[in-house]
């Protein structure tokens, strides 16, 4: 089986907005490859086209709620875990591209 390339690791890191050191890139290439190898075992299982694949670890289908509204969190709790806030808002570093 072909290992995960450093370019692929960089691409995945870019998508998650992460900067990796050279050492980390090599380390994660191995770790990600291990995950993919496990997935390959699942992919290799022969299932019929029309079989519904189990996507959730439950056989209880069709679980809904009926448009009820319950009070949400209080503002102080909403803002509590944010690194930065400004007035009633959670703030993040300025996003430029949108």
């Amino acid at each position: 089986m072909q290992g995960l390339s450093i370019e692929e690791v960089i691409h995945v890191a870019d998508l998650a907005n992460l900067t990796l050191t050279e050492e980390e890139k090599k380390k994660f290439a191995c770790q990600l490859q291990d995950i993919l190898s496990d997935i390959d075992k699942i992919v290799a299982i022969d299932i019929k086209e029309e079989q519904e694949i189990l996507i959730a670890p439950t056989e209880n289908y069709d679980i809904y709620h009926n448009d009820e509204v319950e009070g949400g969190l209080e503002m102080k709790d909403i803002l509590k875990n944010a690194n930065k806030t400004s007035g009633d808002y959670i703030t993040v570093p300025k996003v430029l591209d949108e």
Binding site: K84, S86, D88, Y89, I90, K94
Partner: peptide
């Protein structure tokens, strides 16, 4: 998101 001069504000 509301973009201001210095930061992005989230509602």
């Amino acid at each position: 998101s509301i973009h201001t001069e210095k930061a992005t504000l989230l509602n």
